[in-house]
């Protein structure tokens, strides 16, 4: 895959380049400040972009704003946003434009190299990768409508909201895919959601329900 990275911390940027090239990806561009992000993405049209929320010059949310701006011009451009901490407002801003090809992960996750690469693949393929912390905050905040769910169904819901496909959920929970489908059908029925199969639409439906 061709990837554009926007990360100002030299140590981390170097590590990301090392990681991505070592598994055969191509880093088309590496930029270190907010104003460079949009031009770099428009020029290179990467398969996926990895963008840090905080970038110079202001080091507040330059990266996030650049992502929002570029997704307005190139809807669906896959972007994985990395952040030093996860925040609901930030997640809401990102998801407002659709969950397709969108990732929002804690920076800490890059240490779990395989999980990180999987998330990146998922986002590049038009899927969603939400940090478990974002999802668990959403789940814990709105416990009322989830009261009727069994613990297993909650686990499935959480993984689904993170953007995982049925197969992965089955692997992670060590159950069969059929069991996963059954859980999902139950969850959708209990939450009164219309059944849907496409990954990102499913995530959106779940998140919209949780935020409502």
């Amino acid at each position: 895959m061709r990837i554009v990275i926007a990360e100002d911390n030299a140590l981390l940027a170097e590590g990301l380049v090392l990681l991505l090239t070592s598994v055969g990806h191509e880093v088309a561009a590496l930029v270190g400040s907010g104003p460079e992000v949009v031009p770099a993405l428009l020029e290179h049209r990467p398969d996926v972009a990895v963008v840090d929320v905080r970038l110079p010059p202001t080091r507040t949310d330059e990266g996030l704003r650049a992502v929002l701006a570029v997704r307005e011009r190139l809807p669906g451009l896959p972007v994985l946003v990395l952040s030093q901490h996860v925040e609901q407002g930030c997640a809401a801003d990102l998801l407002a434009g659709g969950a397709q090809g969108l990732g929002y992960l804690l920076k800490d996750r890059v240490g779990r190299v395989q999980d990180f690469l999987d998330a990146l693949e998922r986002v590049a393929g038009g899927g969603t990768a939400l940090d478990p912390e974002v999802v668990s905050t959403l789940l814990s905040r709105r416990d009322d409508p989830l009261e009727g769910l069994t613990p297993r169904e909650r686990e499935v819901l959480s993984l689904m909201a993170q953007g995982h496909a049925n197969g992965t959920i089955a692997e992670l929970l060590v159950i069969t895919e059929r069991a996963v489908s059954k859980h999902i059908a139950n969850i959708f029925a209990k939450l009164d959601l219309p059944p849907t199969d496409a990954g990102h639409r499913r995530v959106l439906a779940v998140l919209r329900h949780l935020r409502a």
């Binding site: 911390n9 981390l12 590590g15 990681l19 030093q84 920076k107 890059v110 240490g111």
Partner: peptide, 14 residues
């Protein structure tokens, strides 16, 4: 500190 730790974690992952 935090960025350093992430970079270290990344190297250990690799």
């Amino acid at each position: 500190t935090q960025a350093q730790l992430v970079a270290i974690s990344l190297r250990l992952g690799l």
